[in-house]
């Protein structure tokens, strides 16, 4: 038996992965992305005259676990109707048994690329705040994303932020109603692609997430992963968006440190609390993460109200000058 050359093998794999959309109303376009369990393809919807993104499993899933996860992801997205979450348009199954779902085709750039074009810290912090909004919304709906990272956040041409890839999101309410504990697990064996080796859904014994953005309890596989795991990832994103120069400011560094604390109990209770502290930082108000010394508070007050203080000083200087001139 002769082995196939690499090029022929890769062509074969590509042909196998290419979804057959003949039984759907969509016309296949190019592949636009690849994740741990499937790929994302651009497709045309001739009936509605628009382009969509189709997420499809790479290969037929005989055990059905990955298929279940893909369908579950579609249900999670359908539950999260928010401008910052990609809307799902349609779901189905290919002739070879692979499930797929159609969603809005996101045109834009990754969060880190978009942030790199913003020259000022307030602009980057405001971008960060827009990432917090859909995450906070998801938490309010009992959904924990568990894989927030720059490649899973897209920024559109009008500055709109979309959080993608909810494939390993945890549904807290569903688990509670099923009496299922969280996903305890062993340490990841594949540091870059831990999801590739992951067990289905969010079952026990799996480590799901991306090293570097994964909260410590998530990496350990503790059962009690909740919204504070996303707060940890948001803290890492905040650190990256702010940059090392900005983190010399103690108050901002304290916000990042609190968001990325080792123990969940020491972190912000949720994305809204973290966002509120960032807003306070932007507004020059005291932040909950940092206890100011009196002179720091005075300096912050002076900076925040510098124009008003300068005007009062100008008035006092004019008064003093008039008195001195008058006495001569």
């Amino acid at each position: 038996m002769t082995a196939l050359p690499d090029a022929a093998l890769s062509r074969l794999v590509r042909a196998l992965r290419t979804p057959d959309l003949s039984e759907t109303r969509y016309l296949l376009g190019r592949e636009v992305g690849r994740g741990g369990m499937g790929s994302v393809w651009e497709a045309d919807d001739p009936e509605l005259g628009r382009s969509v993104a189709l997420k499809v499993l790479d290969l037929p899933d005989s055990a059905g676990d990955l298929s279940a996860r893909l369908r579950r992801e579609a249900r999670v997205l359908a539950r999260l109707e928010h401008p910052g979450v990609v809307p799902v348009h349609d779901v189905g199954t290919l002739p070879d048994g692979r499930p797929w779902y159609a969603m809005k085709l996101v045109r834009g750039e990754r969060l880190d690329a978009a942030a790199a074009r913003l020259s000022t810290l307030p602009e980057r912090l405001r971008l960060f705040l827009r990432v917090c909004e859909p995450v906070a919304f998801a938490h309010a709906r009992g959904v924990v994303h568990r894989d927030l990272k720059p490649s899973n956040v897209m920024v559109g041409p009008f500055g709109e932020v979309l959080v993608l890839d909810w494939g390993i999101a945890r549904l807290l309410e569903e688990e509670a109603s099923e009496g299922r504990p969280g996903p305890p697990a062993a340490p990841p064996t594949e540091p870059r692609e831990p999801r590739a080796a992951a067990a289905p859904g969010t079952a026990a014994g799996t480590v799901l997430g991306t090293p570097g953005y994964m909260a410590p309890e998530q990496a350990r596989g503790d059962g009690d992963v909740d919204g504070r795991a996303d707060v940890f990832a948001l803290g890492v994103l905040l650190r990256e968006l702010a940059g090392p120069e900005a983190l010399r400011a103690r108050r901002l560094a304290a916000i990042v440190a609190k968001a990325t604390a080792e123990r969940p109990a020491e972190r912000y209770g949720g994305a809204p609390a973290l966002a509120a502290d960032v807003v306070r930082y932007l507004d020059g108000e005291p932040v909950t993460a940092y206890r100011e010394r009196p002179w720091e508070r005075a300096a912050r007050f002076a900076v925040r109200h510098r124009v008003a203080l300068l005007l009062v000083l100008a008035y006092l200087a004019a008064r003093a000058a008039i008195l001195v001139l008058y006495r001569r």
């Binding site: 124009v307 008003a308 005007l311 009062v312 100008a314 008035y315 004019a318 008064r319 008039i322 008058y326």
Partner: peptide, 22 residues
């Protein structure tokens, strides 16, 4: 005129800024 009008105008400046800003 100068001694009364200059500080008076500055008071208006401070009042105007603080009222509009805060």
């Amino acid at each position: 005129y100068f001694e009364v009008m200059l500080p008076g105008a500055l008071v208006g400046l401070v009042t105007g800024y603080v009222t509009a800003r805060y």
